[in-house]
Design a protein around this nucleic acid. Structure first.
Length: 179
DNA sequence: CGACTTTGACCTGCGC
DNA sequence: GCGCAGGTCAAAGTCG
């Protein structure tokens, strides 16, 4: 798609998932959600498959599909991946002035990379909860710096750490709203 | 002092 | 094989 914003669906500003900072600061009230449909293909919740540079930004994540990343034990085990466990990935796009969306979990930044054809770096975060290997990427669009793309990989193995709605709830609501 | 960020180096996959 | 791009590591620095 050439213009994601045209397909972004909106939520009522009075909705309850105020765990997201962007919803608190009035800078953002538009969201677009994607789920991984196939390698490198992301499907919006309304059934539109996206294939622009937003989804391509997530392709690198999809490349690792099928391998359980065992980061704690080093790089070698990444390739051992005997068990083909497919981690759920959810990419969604927000209009926000802030990059870090407070989804209620605690994240530790473990990397930042310059992305080709994008003047903004991509940031890599990992859930700090022991044993929870959930990762997320946060990237701002080069052609629209008001849009932040967040990609979640994996499922949290623990309760949310803040007393707010969790991301699964948000996703659920997204799907409900999109129908 | 623990938790977190920064950042250069390193590794891997992929296209040519 | 080589170079590029993406992803991760890990030591050092910062902050509360």
């Amino acid at each position: 798609m050439n213009d994601n914003t045209g397909a972004i669906f909106s939520y009522p500003s009075s909705s309850s998932y105020l765990s997201l900072n962007m919803a608190n600061n009035n800078h953002a009230n538009d969201y677009a959600g994607f789920t991984e449909k196939d390698h490198g293909k992301y499907e919006m919740f309304d059934g539109v498959v996206v294939d622009d540079h937003v989804s391509r930004a997530s392709n690198a994540l999809a490349q690792g599909d099928g391998n359980e990343l065992n980061v704690s034990s080093g790089k070698v085990n990444i390739r051992k991946g005997e068990k083909k466990i497919k981690k759920p990935k959810h990419a969604f796009q927000t209009r926000s002035q802030v990059d870090i969306l407070d989804d209620g979990y605690r994240w530790r930044k473990y990397g930042q990379k310059a992305v080709k054809n994008n003047k903004f770096p991509r940031n890599y975060y990992r859930c700090t909860y022991q044993g929870c290997n959930v990762k997320k990427q946060v990237q701002r669009l080069s052609n629209d710096d008001g849009v932040v793309v967040t990609t979640y990989e994996g499922t949290h193995t623990h309760p949310i750490e803040k007393s707010t709605d969790n991301f699964e709830n948000i996703l659920t609501q997204m799907q409900i709203y999109s129908r």
